[in-house]
């Protein structure tokens, strides 16, 4: 049982929770995630650890309400408990001084991107963050992203904020204006697929954080499997981050629809 300490709406459908989890707070690194379960009949669902406070013993999750399980979580209030939470899971992001790193986050993907932006900056990289969403209200965590980024590019589909266009337009502009050593992308699978296609064209090494369906999150079931470089990998233990240019995004997109 993990107690919810605070709750804040980042947009109409996106909630930020601070949750008591002292052991996880202490051992987690950028890129790690947890699996949570709400209620005795609840399912196990993964969420990235957006940040942690080791002194308070809390971690932060940013959750987008998309269906039954995220909804059950989003209606919880401070003082209430998450039934089960386990982590930190997955491999931590590979952080080093690459030079210039573009962090391309779409929608709620900005939340899991945040700890990576911070760690990349602290490792001495020049960090350019490209945030994208359908419309202005869905751009989340902009201030936090600005704190650790050398530059921030904002893209909206409808042009209501930042520049009008897709995330790929933003990334392409950066690549055309300076040498980019690495691109990290997190967001809906379809978005990551197109970012990956783009950076492949420009030969920019790219890492994508995959959000497949999971059950245990510890390598036990294989529900999370994806094809990377022609081989089957388990996202929960071999990932969640992979060389985007080698990921079979079409298969992943197909598998995400398994229960829809």
């Amino acid at each position: 049982m993990n107690k919810i300490v605070s709750k804040e709406y980042l947009s109409e459908r996106v909630v930020r929770f601070e949750v008591e989890a002292p052991l996880i707070a202490r051992s987690r690194k950028a890129g790690h995630f947890v699996i949570v379960r709400v209620g005795k009949k609840g399912e196990r669902v993964p969420y990235t650890i957006a940040s942690a406070d080791t002194k308070k013993g809390t971690i932060t999750l940013v959750v987008q309400r998309v269906g039954k399980s995220s909804e059950k979580l989003c209606i919880l209030e401070p003082g209430e408990y998450i039934t089960d939470m386990v982590g930190p899971l997955g491999k931590a992001t590979h952080i080093e001084n690459f030079g210039t790193v573009v962090c391309a986050g779409g929608g709620v993907g900005v939340a899991p991107m945040l700890p990576i932006i911070e760690a990349m900056k602290n490792a001495g990289n020049r960090v350019i963050s490209v945030l994208a969403a359908r419309t202005k209200e869905l751009i989340i965590l902009e201030d936090q992203v600005r704190e650790y980024s050398d530059e921030v590019v904002i893209m909206t589909d409808d042009g209501s904020y930042g520049e009008k266009g897709l995330i790929t337009d933003g990334v392409e502009k950066v690549i055309n204006s300076e040498k980019v050593d690495l691109c990290v992308t997190i967001g809906p699978a379809i978005m990551m697929k197109f970012v990956s296609k783009l950076t492949e064209k420009y030969n920019v090494p790219t890492v994508a954080s995959l959000n497949t369906i999971m059950v245990d999150g510890t390598g036990m079931c294989g529900a999370c499997r994806v094809t990377v470089d022609g081989k089957t990998k388990f996202v929960c233990i071999d990932g969640p981050e992979f060389d985007a240019h080698k990921v079979d995004f079409d298969e992943m997109l197909m598998r995400l629809k398994a229960y829809n």
Partner: peptide, 12 residues
């Protein structure tokens, strides 16, 4: 074809 939907491990 082993990663098609509907094919899973016994553990899953």
């Amino acid at each position: 074809g082993e990663n098609l939907i509907g094919i899973m491990s016994c553990n899953e």
